[in-house]
Design a protein around this nucleic acid. Structure first.
Length: 536
RNA sequence: GCCCGGGUGGUGUAGCCCGGUCAAUCAUGCGGGACUCUCGAUCCCGCGACCCGGGUUCAAAUCCCGGCCCGGGCACCA
């Protein structure tokens, strides 16, 4: 057919033209009649695409996954990748999903009590069913036990080298003087670590590895260290020997029966380290899936940057609409299903991905479009004085064009009183131009300036506006004060204006301000409304 | 410097393991149109990509070698 494309194209165009001429309902009816399979196929195809690829070595009912955040900051879209994949596969295989707080660094990445709660809250908001919750700081005795076992079996030792000295030896591939000392000596030092005879930085438990491992960074990696006065938010100063990430993770993944691990590719090398422990104990290492880093265009995800911004007063808090934390997305009116869908779409790729906001917005729009009621919000209002219509006129507009059953809202026009239109539409208000005040009537612009617009009534009928292709604008007469916070990259723009008085909105509603965009109602104080912009 | 990983339209993704069915999927975006009292939604049509070079082969996005580019790791952090 291809060589004949030139002849076919006009034919196709003609047919398309004809089909478009017969109206949508009729088109569908006709199609069902002549080609009923089409509808079934379409559905089947969609479902097939949605799913995640099968998980290697996964047995129905036996998959156990976990998500192990450090509660030192709010949960964000980047973390959500590992979390959602873990949870999704647990559900897919009828398995178990574990939340484990990895709060073993009371010093550099200090956990804070509120983040334990927030993470749980955010996961629940995302629709997670959490089967078990564990907190690493409750489990120190368990880590101690395993550490001692490793020391006894000569697989680990207590090293009291100065860090710089140790690094030097390690890089050369030579053992440090403590490595080969007898077990009794090691155990004695281990006791000294626990009872406080060594101070912070003076001793560390190391796991024996291949001294010639090509990557010096995995050689003789540290498993537990001392922290003086940890003042841990959950255990205070009860414990001063704390496991490092690799040790605690390795032990817990085994102890909790984790079968599949999802984590960022930055952890690939940690797996090599952790495997030593599995080998020493003869355990089977879980199946691991490494994914790339997920970021979203123009949104800040980094915990340290966020914290700094908050401290400097640049951000309103962890849920500032400019941020990529889950609470910030929620505050903007992004639905959990949209986040889940996005992450499933991005999938298991190992390369880093930066998705565009458009992409998330498109998914979210599809979800909220049917639920969001419509209202008129006039940003930067400008009065328009209309001559030539001397009666009161009540415009009754459906709350949602596709759902008349939800009822209507009423906007009243009173002769002699101005209607307010948006400064954003100034380009349409040129003398001699015609515009339609949506659901009210058509006017001709007589004069226009930033201070006010004079217009002349033309006609009521919508059809007149449509035939002439006149543009349509939204408007209010009396409105309640309303501001919309619009995140734009690093800036948070405040749009002030008037919201139609018949808008009975409450906090958490996701609505559409017509011709402005979808917003979530953030606060309603007396008459005043604050909303946060989600997307067009 | 040393050690991993990755490069498919503007963006994201499928395909790569097991070479042909790929003149390459789907979504988003962009352009055009239909419909509609929103510049929204819906529907239709269109645009646009296999990092580069070599090799193997009848046949390469897919296998091999080399190069380039981009991420990540190299903490007594997680």
């Amino acid at each position: 057919m291809r060589p004949k494309a030139k002849e076919i194209i006009p034919l196709v165009n003609e047919i398309v033209e004809r089909v478009n001429g017969i109206g949508l309902g009729e088109q569908e009816a006709k199609l069902r009649e002549i080609y009923p399979e089409f509808f079934e196929e379409k559905k089947a195809k969609k479902e097939e695409k949605k799913g995640l690829p099968p998980l290697p070595k996964a047995e129905k009912g036996k998959v156990v996954t976990r998500f192990a955040p450090n509660p030192d900051g709010a949960f964000h879209l980047g973390n959500a990748r590992a979390a959602i994949l873990s949870h999704e596969y647990a559900r897919l295989y009828g398995g178990k999903f574990i939340l484990r707080f990895d709060d073993t660094d009371p010093k550099v990445k200090r956990p804070e009590p509120k983040f334990y709660e927030w993470i749980l809250e955010d996961l629940e908001w995302l629709g997670f069913k959490i089967d078990e919750i564990h907190i690493a700081s409750d489990r120190l005795e368990i880590y101690y036990d395993y550490a001692e076992k490793l020391i006894r079996s000569g697989k680990a030792y207590v090293c009291t080298c100065k860090p710089e000295k140790f690094r030097e030896l390690r890089d050369k591939g030579t053992p440090c003087p403590h490595r080969e000392e007898p077990v009794e000596v090691q155990l004695e030092r281990w006791r000294k670590m626990l009872n406080g005879e060594y101070k912070e930085g003076e001793a560390v438990v190391r796991i024996k590895t291949d001294l010639k491992h090509p990557n010096p960074a995995v050689r003789e990696w540290p498993a537990l260290r001392i922290i003086d006065n940890p003042n841990h938010p959950r255990t205070g100063n009860k414990y001063r020997v704390w496991p490092l990430y690799n040790f605690a993770s390795a032990i817990d993944d085994h102890e909790l029966g984790v079968t599949h691990i999802f984590r960022g590719q930055e952890h690939a090398e940690n797996e090599t380290r952790q495997r030593y422990i599995y080998d020493y104990f003869g355990w089977e290492y879980p199946v691991t899936v490494h994914h790339g880093r997920l970021s979203i265009e123009g949104v800040i995800l980094s915990k340290s940057k966020t914290r700094k911004g908050i401290e400097e007063g640049k951000y309103l808090g962890w849920d500032d609409p400019r941020l990529g934390t889950i609470r910030a997305l929620r505050r903007r009116g992004i639905r959990p299903e949209a986040i889940r869908e996005l992450i499933i779409e991005v999938g298991l790729k190992r390369s880093d991905t930066t998705v565009s906001w458009d992409n998330l917005a498109a998914i979210n729009r599809r979800i909220i479009e049917p639920i969001a009621n419509r209202y008129f919000f006039v940003a930067d209002p400008i009065p328009m004085y209309v001559d030539g219509y001397d009666e009161e006129f009540v415009a009754e507009i459906p709350l949602h064009p596709d759902h008349p059953e939800r009822g209507t809202r009423k906007l009243k026009f009173r002769p002699g009183e101005p209607v307010y239109v948006s400064g954003d539409d100034m380009g349409l208000f040129k003398p001699g131009n015609f515009v339609r005040l949506k659901d009210l009537f058509n006017v001709e612009i007589v004069e226009a300036s930033e201070d006010g617009i004079r217009a002349k009534f033309h006609s009521v009928e919508y059809e007149v506006a449509r035939e002439n292709k006149w543009r349509m604008v939204h408007w209010v007469t009396v409105g309640r004060p309303c501001e919309v916070l619009v995140p734009e990259g690093d800036k948070l723009i405040v749009r002030k204006g008037l919201l139609e008085s018949d808008a009975h909105v409450k906090v958490d509603d996701i609505v559409q301000f017509e011709r402005f965009g979808f917003v979530r109602i953030d606060e309603v104080k007396d008459e005043k409304v604050r909303a946060i912009f989600a997307h067009k």
